[in-house]
């Protein structure tokens, strides 16, 4: 039995490794400047990262943040402003680090204030407010943020799509590794304990606030990294672009679609939703948002807890139904 379990874990690792190697090799087979597939993977990686960041605070710890776009936007703005001031350059690791740290600090400060005072829906609303305040601040920032027009960056610095692709892949893998390590450690258990019952967790000696802030900050850090990368990709940082609610809504959707509080959920959800969005925008460009909305409604109606839960809970039922239909079909034949 033990051996079987170990084998299962090994196959998981091997499958993961194969997928990662496939992603690494992709640009070698495809022309990354032109390939739509590379662009698709790039955006999906970014969404997976943000979704996992949200998953840590909302899925595992149970504190539903709706302010992830604040961290994304802050990361993008820090990158743009430091580059414009000449402090950092194009694809500067320092810029990434600064953006991530800036987002982390914002999360820590916001976290100390909001997480200590607010619970449940109130916390969600508070974080939503933080994002909106940042957006208005960027709009009214004068020459520092250049208002609604935003900061235009030197787009001649562009080298190749491969840079973006591999950076996104790296950030995603970094996030996934951090999340796995966290979740398997004492910290992960503490986070889940907080989600299940805060009072009981605190009674058992878990420093609830500290762990909540930790999860919130780590999620913000990786989201800030994504914002930074996005600034380099778009070469234009403006409030409707980087501080759009889409940067919180879409990853959250992916997370819930896949199953919040599971490791594979956000990854699965990100791929499913991205593919759905892309296919509809190719086939029915006129009405694709209608389809996207209807898709979300249908999924919540029929799989309200996400794909991962559906699969794990209904594994035997799915198989049974499959067998039954095959059996009936065979009987009819005979």
């Amino acid at each position: 039995m033990l051996r079987l379990n170990q084998m299962k874990v090994h196959t998981k690792y091997i499958a993961g490794l194969i997928v990662v190697i496939f992603f690494v090799l992709c640009p070698l087979f495809l022309n990354s400047e032109r390939s739509y597939f590379i662009y698709f993977l790039y955006t999906t990686f970014i969404y997976i990262t943000i979704a996992q960041g949200w998953n840590l605070i909302a899925g595992y710890t149970g504190q539903v943040s709706l302010g992830q776009h604040a961290f994304f936007g802050l990361g993008a703005y820090i990158t743009a402003i430091t580059w414009r001031a000449g402090l950092t350059g194009y694809f500067d690791p320092l810029a990434f680090l600064l953006s991530g740290t800036g987002a982390l600090l914002l999360a820590a400060i916001v976290g100390v204030v909001l997480l200590s005072k607010l619970r449940d829906d109130y916390f969600s609303l508070g974080t939503l407010g933080i994002g909106e305040i940042l957006r208005v601040a960027a709009l009214n920032g004068g020459s520092f943020t250049e208002g609604a027009a935003g900061i235009s960056l030197n787009s001649t610095a562009y080298k190749s799509m491969n840079h973006y692709y591999y950076t996104a892949l790296f950030i995603m893998l970094f996030t996934l590794v951090v999340i796995v390590l966290l979740i398997r450690s004492r910290v992960g258990l503490a986070l889940i304990a907080i989600r299940e019952d805060e009072t009981a967790a605190s009674a058992n000696g878990i420093p609830v606030l500290r762990y909540k802030i930790l999860a919130f900050s780590i999620g913000a850090f990786v989201t800030g990294l994504c914002g930074s990368l996005n600034a380099y990709y778009i070469f234009h940082v403006h409030p409707p672009g980087v501080l759009s609610l889409n940067w919180v809504v879409i990853p959250v959707l992916m997370c819930i679609l896949g199953g919040a509080g599971t490791f594979m959920g956000p990854i699965l959800g990100a791929f499913v939703l991205s593919i759905a969005f892309e296919l509809t925008s190719i086939w029915m460009p006129e009405i694709h948002p209608i389809f996207s909305g209807a898709f979300i409604v249908l999924v919540t109606l029929f799989m309200p807890s996400g794909i991962m839960y559906y699969i794990t809970n209904h594994k035997s039922m799915i198989m049974r139904r499959l067998r039954l239909t095959v059996f009936k079909w065979m009987n009819q034949k005979a």
Binding site: A58, I256, A260, P289, G293, A294, I296, T300
Partner: peptide, 14 residues
Amino acid sequence: PSSTLLLAFGLMVF
């Protein structure tokens, strides 16, 4: 609650 929020959001987009 997160599912109903998602449903409301889907309705909004739709």
